[in-house]
Simulated assay, not measured.
Amino acid sequence: MSAAAAAPSVPTPSIAELADGLKRAGHVFLQGAAMQPLLQAERALDDWPAFVAAWDGMPLDTYMADGGRYRRRLYAVYQADAGGIERAAHQPHFQGLEYNPLNGNVARWFEPIADAVGSGATMHAVLGFCHRLFGSLAPAVNRWHVEVHQFRIEAAAGEAGKPTPEGVHRDGVDYVLVLLVRRHNIASGTTTIHTPAGDDLGSFTLTQPFDATLVDDHRVYHGVTPVEPIDPQQPAFRDVLVVTFRAA
């Protein structure tokens, strides 16, 4: 799918409306037909086909404590402030066990997101959108530590792929964006939202390119159900971009 071939038109909320939604509920689900114009307002998505193709051939995540070989991953870090958004030196991803009981307390060195992707129009449209939205929610923050993850979750006959193998969780940041890039030949992958006490706040499934979830990580927990192949003889995968913002 090209950036120009969006889903049928739906109302596109303003940044202020999205901020109000996050303040009220702690999470917002955006259909791709609403999300795409928000990104295009930041920058033309001229490199979208190359952006999508960047999920092909990614290396396996070798840090999976459950022994799973269903996740592929690339990673980058940025800094965002009033002067703009710049990529930072490559560094490990670290989460404490309180946020990731499966793979926490390990400095995980993932291969870097390719320079052409990390500096491209689509990536900077996504980062610019997040900076405007999350910055409006926390105007006192002068500088953000931004982490970006390319994830491919693969499913095969007899082995479901787990988008959130650590279970329902927080990420240990301030705000999160999950953007669907592509899904192929999979069933399920339903996002669930919960209160810190475990109460169910709702669920939805990212099915179309640009479908997105926005999360206030202090207020809600989130998880995604395992994905399974529809046709077990064919490749089956779910590609997402995850962006987290934390006050630096």
Rank of each mutant, 00 (worst) to 15 (best):
M1H: 12
M1V: 14
A4S: 15
P8I: 14
P8A: 09
P8Y: 07
P8V: 08
V10H: 11
P13H: 06
S14H: 06
S14F: 10
E17Q: 15
E17D: 08
L18T: 02
D20K: 07
G21Y: 03
G26F: 01
H27K: 04
F29Y: 07
Q31S: 09
G32R: 00
G32L: 05
Q36T: 12
Q36M: 08
L38K: 01
L39M: 07
Q40P: 04
Q40V: 06
A41R: 09
W48C: 03
F51T: 06
V52N: 12
V52I: 15
V52C: 13
W55I: 02
D56Y: 08
M58H: 05
Y63W: 15
M64Y: 06
R69Y: 12
Y70W: 10
R71M: 04
R73W: 12
L74N: 08
V77D: 10
A82I: 14
A82M: 13
A82R: 14
G84T: 05
H90G: 13
H90A: 10
Q91T: 15
F94K: 04
L97Q: 14
L97C: 13
N100W: 00
N105M: 09
V106F: 09
V106Q: 11
V106S: 05
A107G: 10
A107T: 10
W109I: 14
F110T: 06
P112A: 05
D115N: 15
D115G: 12
A116H: 15
V117N: 00
G118C: 11
A121N: 10
A121S: 15
H124K: 07
A125P: 06
A125K: 01
F129T: 03
H131S: 15
R132Y: 14
F134G: 01
G135F: 03
G135L: 01
P139E: 06
V141L: 08
N142Y: 12
R143A: 12
W144N: 02
E147T: 09
V148S: 03
V148P: 00
V148Y: 06
V148G: 02
V148N: 00
H149G: 04
A155G: 02
A156H: 14
A157F: 11
G161C: 08
G161K: 02
G161W: 00
V168P: 04
H169W: 05
D171Y: 02
V173S: 09
V176M: 06
L177Q: 03
V178L: 14
V178M: 13
L180F: 02
H184S: 09
G189Y: 06
T191R: 00
T192I: 14
T195L: 09
P196F: 01
G198A: 04
G198I: 07
L206Q: 00
T207H: 13
P209Y: 01
P209I: 04
V215N: 00
D217P: 01
H218T: 08
V220R: 03
V224Q: 02
V227H: 01
P235S: 10
F237R: 09
V240N: 04
L241R: 03
V242W: 11
F245M: 03
R246F: 03
R246K: 15
A248I: 08
A248H: 14
